[in-house]
Every structure is written in structure tokens, then in C-alpha cells.
Design a protein around this nucleic acid. Sequence first.
DNA 1: GCGTTAAAGCAATATTTCTGCGTTAGACTT
DNA 2: AAGTCTAACGCAGAAATATTGCTTTAACGC
Lengths: 172, 172
Amino acid sequence: MHDATRELLVETERDGISVPAIAARAGVNPTTIYRRWGDLASVLSDVAADRFRQSDPPAETGSLTGDLSLWAEYFLEEMGSGPGRSYVADVLAGDANGENTGICARYAADAITQILARFPNTANPAVDEVLDHVAAPILYRILFTKQRPEAGYGSQLVTRLLRGTQTDAHQV
Amino acid sequence: MHDATRELLVETERDGISVPAIAARAGVNPTTIYRRWGDLASVLSDVAADRFRQSDPPAETGSLTGDLSLWAEYFLEEMGSGPGRSYVADVLAGDANGENTGICARYAADAITQILARFPNTANPAVDEVLDHVAAPILYRILFTKQRPEAGYGSQLVTRLLRGTQTDAHQV
DNA sequence: GCGTTAAAGCAATATTTCTGCGTTAGACTT
DNA sequence: AAGTCTAACGCAGAAATATTGCTTTAACGC
């Protein structure tokens, strides 16, 4: 079912996608989809969330700044490029109880947690701080402004965050 | 038309809203709505964006920190309370060309610009910095996590941002 | 006043969504 | 192993929604 939806998302125009179309592609009765998901938005939300879930552990560069920057740039690319914005919007649209958005948030949090755990001795920012000041701005720009942020914006946010944290550590 | 939609949003359940229902309420033919907007999502997107647009200039407290904090808390309350999240999601859902999200972003930017202009002599953060590190985290939490952030989170973000900026000024 | 044009109504049609009912497949009991 | 129970699916018909062609209305410039 997810496969069929993904294939349709690639092949056809966005508004050519409908529950009957997905059903036909999956060789299944539309009724099945309606009973399982309720409507098209929920199917798309599930599929989109799934698309963000599958991924490798974040790449290693040897430094906290490097790892976070690389992840931020990857995140920016993944969310901002072409269909990425649509996927994010899909996740939000068909997610009445906040389940799929939760999955996406947890995925990002996991990646950051992994990275931070590699450098336990430095004055690390909290996971939430990275989410708030790196992931959130990227998403904000992708969702609410027309032009996606240029490459380098992600690592710029990371630099800014780490500078702030280090300053704090010194001041305490 | 917007009025009719708003009334329906208040009166009926969310999935009881349809294009024919709005048309009936507005005393108009459904065809008119379909031709003007295309589908329900676009209507809801327009109405939701409009809801955020209408507002007074941000309140004054006499200090940059105070004005920004007050605005941040207002923003948090407006976006996070009850139907707020739905409105944000609506804006995103029915906005193929990014027009309505642009309106929302501009509205937030305008409010921040007004506030910053009141204190021209201090080492102000840029408008984009406020958007990135105050508005964006609030929206991120509202959209992607289940429990809305507690009151005080907005002013906390403002404090963090201004502390960073001031530190920078001293260091330079 | 008169023609032009944009927007809306109306009616017919197509498509999607919903519901009731029958069938099948797998799990569990005896 | 046969019987029963449950959950999921298919099918067909009905209801609701979305689309289209054509007509009507109303506003504007001439």
C-alpha cells in the first residue's frame, strides 16, 4: 500500500492522486483504504512519515560541530528539496492525533542524541536546544517562506548554537 | 464567504465541514466556491491565514525584552491554544504556491519589525534572528510535539536570544 | 442605452466516499 | 481434525461531493 502510494507520488501529478487511484495501483478495493485510514490525507501522512523514518545513523566527522553541521545540512536538504516540503505538509495535514508528527520529531531527536553521545566531555547543548535552534529554524523557513534556505544555513545555525553554549560555560 | 466558514468552524465538528456546507451557509452555489478556490483545503487555508492577519500592533512595555517577550507569549497562546494548531495546519495544507504561509510569515515579521524599531539604539538582533530563534521554536513545538509548550517558554526564548546578542556586542 | 466581460446560478454528469452484507482466511477450542 | 470465532476484505448500491457546459445576472466603458 505504501509502495503503491510512493509510486503514484513519483509518477503522477499531485492532484491526480486519490484513494481509488492508490487502491487500483495496489490491486485492492478502495473500501479497504477507507476503512483502514479514513481518508486520503491520513494515507499520505503515514507514507510521508515513513519516508523520513528510514535512514542511517548520522555520519561521523570527529567533532561535535562537524557532526551537527553535517546532520543539519542533510536535514535541510532532505526537508527542503523539491518534494520534501510537500512531505512535511502531508505529515501535518493528515495527522489528527499527532502521531506521525511525533514520529518525525522523535527521529530528529534520536539523530541528535546519537551525535551528542559521541562527545560526552564537552559542554554540550541539550537535545531540545538543538531542536529549537537548528531544526526548528530550518523547518520554519521551508514551510513558511517561498525560497528554501541556501546551503550552509544549517551549519551556520550549528555554529551559532555552539558558540552560545560555550560562552555560557565560560561565564558560569 | 470567510464569515460563513468561520461560523461553521465554530459551530460544527471539523469533518462536518464541506464545500457544499459552506456554500449553503453563505447562501451561495457550491460551484462558485469550486471555481474560485478549487477545493476545501484552499478555502480553509485562506480563512486560517486571514485569521492570523487581523491584529493590533504589538503591546508596549517600555523595553525591548518586555515587548518581545509579550509578543512571544501572545504568539504562543495564539498558535498553540485549542484550534490554533488546526489553523496553522490548515494554512499549510491548502497552500500549493506558498501564498498564505507567506502572509503569515510576513505578519510575524511585521510585528517584530515594529518592536525592534522602537529601540533603535540598542544592539538589536535582526528580524530574521527573532523569527529563527523565537517564532520558529514555538511553531516547531506546536506542530511536532503533542503537548503545547508551557507558558513562559516564549519569554524564555527571548531572554536567551537577547543574552546572546548582547554577549556578541561585548565581545566585538 | 448597448455591447462586453467577469462572476454566479442551474442542471447534468462524473467521481469519490460511505454503508450493508456476504465471503474468505487465520486462530483458537475441543 | 472439525467447528467456531474474529478480523479483514470484496462487492454493489446509495449518498455525497466535485466537475463541466450552458445560461443568466450585473457591472463597466463607450
